[in-house]
Design a protein around this nucleic acid. Structure first.
Lengths: 218, 218
DNA sequence: CGCTAATCTAGAACAAGTTTCAGACTGGGT
DNA sequence: ACCCAGTCTGAAACTTGTTCTAGATTAGCG
């Protein structure tokens, strides 16, 4: 068990995005720097050899912190990699906002956006491997962090769907299914069981669901 | 690295379903029995505490074989659990064949079938956890075994869709997406991020894709 | 400045997956 | 019955994630 409920005096873990979406606790400058160094070292190691290449001792050394400190910032390897995914997703979200998809059809826009994200993963397949494997391997002790990633992904897809107001429940269901497909297709690709073309087809197929829920635009 | 290409004299591993779908190599009776005992011990341990409770030393002891022997039959914990999943899926497939879903609509039949499978998982959530986590965590060295599981799942879904002849490419795409959703939804449920009701909705949502590819039956 | 609590470091220790090895055992062919 | 190759066993060793401990450092505060 990941013993968390410490004594009331224990301030709290300095790193993990504490609440469901809070800006984390007050970190000193040095602490923020440490956290950044850790995430960067993680991404670098992951880019080289994927999940297995991210070894806690190596991350600690590369980031210039003690092993115990690394564990204070990220209570497990999975936490660490999920945090890395958050980090990367945020970056991606920023990039996507700048040049949003142009197609008139919402479904096509979503597919286009996901394919763009997919191409980003193809550029760093090992990193993708590490992050995605961690994400799907995560157990309950990481659920809040995984949830954050999920919300980020949802936001990206909704962004792509269009500037419409609050999405309908059906649309949200469709988005959930798209996310499922996205993760799972990614995994089959990463484990060499599906080609890039196959992933594209799957994404385009699932995106048709959006058309089912979009009142045929006038 | 998982060093596999042994000397040409090395006959082969006795247990792993060798080829893509072969009936495995000639096993002596004692060997088949050993394999069965291992899989049963695995399922039992998994049913208790999920992925973490399946400890290789304990499996070996419970099955009455040496640790080295266990590794000869299943080259890793993930291989072992994926094989367990194959085993369970085969059982499920048999059960489903006996009482096929009755609904007139193919999409509804598929949804019904998957919900039935889902209920089976709810009966043994820990076992489900162990198997599904192994499945999605599997790397390339397990891809052929994972592929077998995937083919089994596809067969189950196609069975539910109906006795029609060879499915169209579009239908196959839809089935792929349904599988993706099935796995991913299962994971979100197992890690406590989605309710049972949510999983049902996701399954029903994705099954609508079938209607898109089914020529409105006369 | 000097104090105190919290944090960080270095390193040992522990847990579970995986590998390795020497010796006993089995099955099949002569 | 004897022999050989291939299996199985028991136990130790090795790897990497995780935990623990004692002592050095740092941050905030009077």
């Amino acid at each position: 068990m990941t013993t968390e409920p410490k004594s009331p005096t224990a301030r709290a873990v300095p790193a993990g995005p504490a609440g469901p979406a809070g800006p984390a606790l007050p970190l000193t400058e040095r602490q923020a720097a440490r956290r950044r160094r850790i995430l960067q070292a993680t991404a670098e190691l992951a880019s080289r050899g994927g999940f297995d290449a991210v070894q806690m001792r190596e991350v600690a050394e590369a980031a210039g912190v003690a092993l115990g400190t690394l564990y204070r910032y990220f209570p497990s390897k999975v936490h660490l990699l999920v945090a890395t995914m958050q980090d990367q997703l945020q970056r991606l979200h920023g990039t996507l906002r700048k040049r949003p998809p142009t197609d008139a059809d919402p479904a096509a826009r979503v597919a286009q956006t996901l394919m763009r994200a997919f191409r980003a993963m193809q550029r760093e397949p090992h990193l993708a491997d590490a992050m995605v494997r961690a994400l799907t391997f995560a157990d309950r002790s990481v659920s809040s962090e995984v949830d954050t990633v999920s919300r980020l992904t949802t936001a990206i897809i909704l962004d792509a769907m269009g500037p419409a107001g609050p999405p309908s429940p059906e649309q949200l269901s469709a988005v959930r299914v798209i996310e499922h497909t996205w993760h799972s297709a990614l995994i089959t690709w990463l484990s060499g069981r599906a080609s890039i073309a196959q992933v594209r087809i799957d994404i385009e197929t699932v995106c048709r669901l959006i058309r089912l829920t979009t009142p045929q635009q006038a």
